[in-house]
Simulated assay, not measured.
Amino acid sequence: MRVSEKGQVTIPKHVREQAGIRPNSDVMIRLEGGRVIIEPVDGAESRSMRDRMERFLKELDKLEGTGDPALGAEDVMRETRDRT
């Protein structure tokens, strides 16, 4: 098996079938002990991840414009250093 210049790999049909990876399905790719693991993501898990991301982005949007633009990175480090 060869990786294309774009980083693409074709998963052989028999492997896809055994893993339950169907055309246009979502897969999760992760590293585990130096190995690349590719596994199918069921619809509920995929929706759950999308919902979590949407909630996170909404919360992040609420913070927009709330910071002090005069506060630099060193100021933040000084304020947060050695907190107990």
Rank of each mutant, 00 (worst) to 15 (best):
E79R: 09
H14F: 00
M77A: 14
K58Y: 08
R81G: 02
R52H: 09
G20Y: 01
R16Y: 14
E79V: 06
E59T: 05
P69H: 10
R35L: 08
R83S: 03
R83F: 01
T80Y: 05
L60S: 15
A73G: 05
K58L: 11
E59I: 02
A19K: 13
L31C: 06
E45H: 01
D26G: 14
A19V: 08
A70P: 03
G65R: 09
E17I: 13
A70G: 13
R52T: 07
T84K: 15
K58C: 10
Q8A: 14
S25A: 03
N24C: 14
G67A: 15
T66E: 07
E54C: 06
T10P: 00
V27K: 05
G65P: 09
V9F: 09
E79G: 07
I11D: 06
G20I: 00
D42A: 01
R2Q: 11
G33A: 00
M77E: 13
D82I: 10
E64Y: 03
L31D: 10
A73I: 04
P40Q: 07
E39N: 07
L60Q: 13
M53C: 03
M49G: 00
G72C: 04
R47I: 13
L71V: 14
R2F: 12
D75V: 02
G72T: 12
E32Q: 15
D75A: 10
S48K: 12
R35V: 07
G33K: 00
G67M: 10
I29C: 10
I29D: 08
A44Q: 06
M28P: 15
D42Q: 01
G72M: 03
S4A: 08
E5K: 12
T10M: 11
T10D: 08
H14Q: 11
S25I: 00
S46E: 04
Q8G: 02
S48C: 10
M53W: 04
S4M: 02
E79D: 14
A44P: 00
S46F: 02
M53I: 08
A44D: 06
D61S: 10
D61W: 03
I21F: 15
E5A: 15
E39H: 08
R30E: 03
T84P: 02
D68C: 11
V36Y: 04
K62F: 09
R83K: 06
A44R: 07
V27P: 13
P12T: 01
K13R: 06
D82S: 12
V76T: 14
V36D: 08
D51M: 04
R55Q: 10
I21E: 04
R47T: 12
K6V: 13
R2I: 08
L63D: 09
I21Y: 14
E74L: 12
E64G: 07
T66K: 13
K62M: 11
V76P: 10
D68E: 08
V9R: 06
D51F: 07
P40R: 07
R83C: 08
M77Q: 11
R2G: 07
G20A: 02
R35F: 06
E64F: 03
P23M: 12
A19N: 07
G33H: 00
T10H: 04
P40Y: 02
R22N: 13
G67I: 11
D75W: 00
V27N: 09
E74N: 11
R22W: 08
R52M: 11
V76D: 13
E45Q: 06
G72K: 14
V76L: 11
V27W: 01
P69G: 13
M53L: 09
